[in-house]
Design a protein around this nucleic acid. Structure first.
Lengths: 151, 151
DNA sequence: TAATTTTATCTTAGCAACTAAGACATTTAG
DNA sequence: CTAAATGTCTTAGTTGCTAAGATAAAATTA
């Protein structure tokens, strides 16, 4: 095992996280989404429809803040409030994926093109290694979050 | 080239970004940092000391918002305002790395341990592939940001 | 079943952080 | 030396947040 290489990867991973957040921030701003709305829109895109309460738990926002958040999204037709047939207290927030994509895709278009090019530059065998790294990284991050939320 | 694998990596990369942002959010909340302060603290950690104006440009916040941001950080001794000797209008924001680490490290400790374990599970050759992927991804994200800020 | 408790979202009041505009001090340019 | 430009801060007004409680529906209990 190469310790220098290990450290370097750790640093790179940190820089990667930082840059991811920075880009996400910049795109949100460019899309005219106030504050951190891009972040929560991402939650909805990633997880799909969920109730207001689930979004509250997921985002860490109070239910009151989530009400306002949905109002802002709904005004822009980015999500729709739907009512649960079996439990009429619940409000299901359904992302309007098309509308959201129409907003964000132009901003990510060039990024996506270059990402695909990068991916294409690796062999299938290499991609499997990258796949392993990414998926296990995700697992670790998710586990960290669970631990954080527990204590 | 395997198209399915390409798509899968793209999806994984997206999920990785989402999870990164989500974890970052959760840590900030746990650390008692209001709103998006963790994000901008990360900018300072990553880039090192910078002027208030530079942070404003980097973060996209107005100079007024940055003044408030620095005030909050300074009150917690996470950064220090220093005055540029050659240009006394400038305010250099120096992150107190020790203090910031003391705040964040306990929250990241377990994550870091597991990350190192994950890295150690790869061979040097495999790590070079991962290194290549991460560093090129960073380059692409940075380029995307430049393009976004230009138009 | 009716009354009670719990659950899910929304509303309200007050607060914190943001923007836009301009003030102030300093530096640079003419 | 004066005028313009630059870098940060201040102020007023707006927006989004939290905390607490209101409202409505569902689940529980007697």
């Amino acid at each position: 095992m190469n310790t220098d290489l290990t450290r370097q990867i750790r640093k790179l991973n940190q820089a990667h996280a930082y840059t991811t957040i920075h880009l996400h921030e910049a795109v949100g701003r460019k899309a005219g989404l106030p504050g951190t709305d891009h972040k929560y829109l991402g939650f909805l895109l990633q997880k799909g429809p969920m109730t207001a309460g689930e979004l509250s738990a997921l985002s860490g926002l109070t239910t009151g803040a989530v009400t306002g958040l949905i109002d802002r999204f709904e005004k822009k037709h980015l999500v729709k409030r739907q009512f649960d047939k079996t439990d009429r207290r619940k409000v299901i927030i359904a992302p309007n994926t098309q509308k959201i994509m129409a907003l964000l895709e132009p901003l990510y278009k060039e990024y996506r093109r270059q990402s695909e090019q990068l991916i294409a530059s690796f062999s299938a065998q290499e991609l499997h290694i990258i796949e392993m790294y990414l998926s296990k990284s995700i697992d670790i991050m998710n586990e960290t979050m669970h631990t954080l939320n527990d204590k």
